[in-house]
Design a protein around this nucleic acid. Sequence first.
DNA 1: TCTGGGGTCCTAGGGCGA
DNA 2: TCTGTCGCCCTAGGACCC
Length: 419
Amino acid sequence: MFALVDCNNFYASCQRVFNPQLQGKPIVILSNNDGCVIARSNEAKACGIPMGAPAFEYKKQFEEHNIHVFSSNFALYGDMSSRVMNTLSQFSPDMEVYSVDEAFLKFTGFEHFDLKELGLKMRRTTTKNTGIPVSIGFAPTKALAKIANKIAKKYPLETRAVHTIDTEEKRIKALRWTKIEDVWGIGKKHAQRLKAQNVHTALDFTKLPDAWVRKNMHVVGLRLKKELEGLSALDLEPIQNKKMIATTRSFDKPLTTLDELEERVATYAILGAEKLRRQNSHCQMLMVFLQTNPHRQDQPQYYRNIVVNHPFPTDSSIDIVRLAKMGLKQIFRANHFYKKAGVILMDITPNQNVQLNLFSQSNPKHPQLMATIDKINLSLGNHKVKFASQALDRVWKMRQEQLSPNYTTNIKDIITIKL
DNA sequence: TCTGGGGTCCTAGGGCGA
DNA sequence: TCTGTCGCCCTAGGACCC
């Protein structure tokens, strides 16, 4: 049996843990630069705030409904996520952290166990340890566990936020209840195509011929169909190093000069290189892109990316910045208002098996230098050591007007209780 | 004036050598 | 030497996820 544990309105719940006055109040969380809504509490959903809503367009609704608006605080969410995952890992040795707020757990040999009781215990423990409410779905496959979880979340009173699909009758009932567009793995395009075939529920989908699904939705679709039929086709995924590392940001204001863009791109390259070193990997290829604001059709539009290769695999910020700037120079065009840029590290390999190059070698001083910089930045925080290309004299940062304190990761932000 | 960021997997199709 | 076929590798793009 698989369990899918999902935190309820995770980002909003994180804010509530340290500010209990927010219980029962509508909350929205905004994306970087306070651009658009990326998370909502149930109360905010009830006010009609859609996912992805541009914040500036909904400002009036926020005020009218007294909605509490927060900038995203990923340091807080990341730390709360690891606390939740840590608690859940006590219940099964087989666990896959699927996303920041979701985990699959495998319970081998638990078929005759009282899973409802186990689920309720998992819920109680997680809430007690972290303050974050969760919903839990149990089923024989991952795709069915997703559906069981959805039911638990939708009917918290009837299910006590724990639902189990453990009989054929319950499976059929759950599939009939699930709209095709809500099935895990069915996106907009497939849903459209399926509806044209008169497939409106997950149950309808399982009645399609295998050959049709294989032809139109490839092996991924077929695997999903088997999962919904109760035949496990997806196992827990082992933890793997990232195959690409992307660092991309929109700017707070449009940029026009190569100098300004170089600063940003250098910083993104350095952030990427740090992530690369954290997972003990090297990369030999990177992509740089830049783009104007697609929402400003009155301005000339430009998007370009370029892939550049390094002669040997490297994890040195110095090499990676040099490469990124080289790429940027080639795609930069003057007389445009740039809104976004990014650096994506690719061709990532573990650092134990680095392929050497006959003609060019890495600088032997770099590994030690990088290790020292990482160590200083880790102990002092906030990127105290900077590279010259990041422009030391200038400060630019995201717009985060409603940023909450880092209650759990910054000693200065620890909550104080007045008696 | 303001519209996010970071991933994975799969397939089609072209280049290329055997 | 030319041509057809097959399989491998690579890349671009689509579709999906949170």
